[in-house]
Amino acid sequence: MLELINDRVIPGALRLTESQGDGWWHRINLERLDSSSDTNSVLGQLYGSREKGLRLMLLDTEEADNFGFHVNAEAFGMDNNMAVTAHRILDLGWVNLISNLQRDTVRIAA
């Protein structure tokens, strides 16, 4: 999971800090967080929908995957079970980082 956080979630968090400024993590409800959901994903909670967030941040589907905003299961040939597992792992990465940001135990700067 550390690789996922370092390779995707942290770059995504930095991109959000560039776009939203410091403190965006306080607007994320971790109990609702679900990267497979258009509205409960990180971008969904910040922008109203993942698609709107991607559009406003000028990101395509591949970039969304690279920044940990979504798992492009089709591109990786994942079946439904694998996709669900991948989203859960991604969610764990976001929850770990955001909970630390919310507790102010880590800092992130663009």
Rank of each mutant, 00 (worst) to 15 (best):
I10V: 14
L4Y: 07
F69E: 01
E62P: 00
S35Y: 00
F69T: 01
I5L: 11
I108K: 02
T105S: 15
L16C: 12
L101G: 04
Q20E: 15
L46W: 01
I98L: 05
G21K: 02
E62N: 08
S41I: 02
S19D: 14
S19L: 04
F69C: 02
D22T: 05
S99N: 06
A110E: 13
F67G: 00
E31P: 03
D79M: 09
D60H: 05
I89T: 15
H70G: 00
L14E: 12
M1I: 09
L14Y: 04
K52V: 10
L33E: 10
R8Q: 13
L43V: 10
A109F: 11
N96Y: 08
S49D: 10
L59E: 03
S35G: 10
A73L: 09
V106C: 08
L92P: 00
A109T: 13
L54V: 05
L16K: 02
N66L: 10
H87L: 11
L92E: 14
R107I: 13
S35K: 00
S49K: 02
N6Y: 10
Y47P: 05
L4N: 12
R107C: 12
R88Q: 13
H26C: 11
T39K: 05
R103A: 13
N29G: 10
R15L: 15
F69M: 04
K52I: 07
I108L: 15
D34P: 00
R32T: 12
G23E: 06
L33V: 09
V42M: 06
L2H: 12
L58V: 09
N6Q: 14
W94R: 00
T105R: 06
A109N: 09
L92M: 13
F67K: 03
L14T: 03
L58K: 11
E62V: 12
D104N: 13
E51K: 05
M82H: 07
N100D: 10
M78I: 08
A73G: 15
L97Q: 01
E3N: 14
R50N: 08
D65H: 15
L33I: 10
A13V: 12
V42T: 07
S37L: 01
G23H: 05
S99R: 06
D38V: 00
E3L: 13
M82T: 11
Q20D: 10
G21P: 00
L16H: 06
H26V: 09
R55S: 14
M78E: 12
D7Q: 15
L2W: 09
Y47T: 07
L101C: 08
Q20Y: 07
L58S: 13
N72G: 04
N29V: 09
W24I: 06
V9L: 03
A13R: 04
H26K: 14
E51R: 04
A13G: 15
N100C: 09
D65V: 01
T85P: 00
D60Y: 05
G77M: 10
L16E: 08
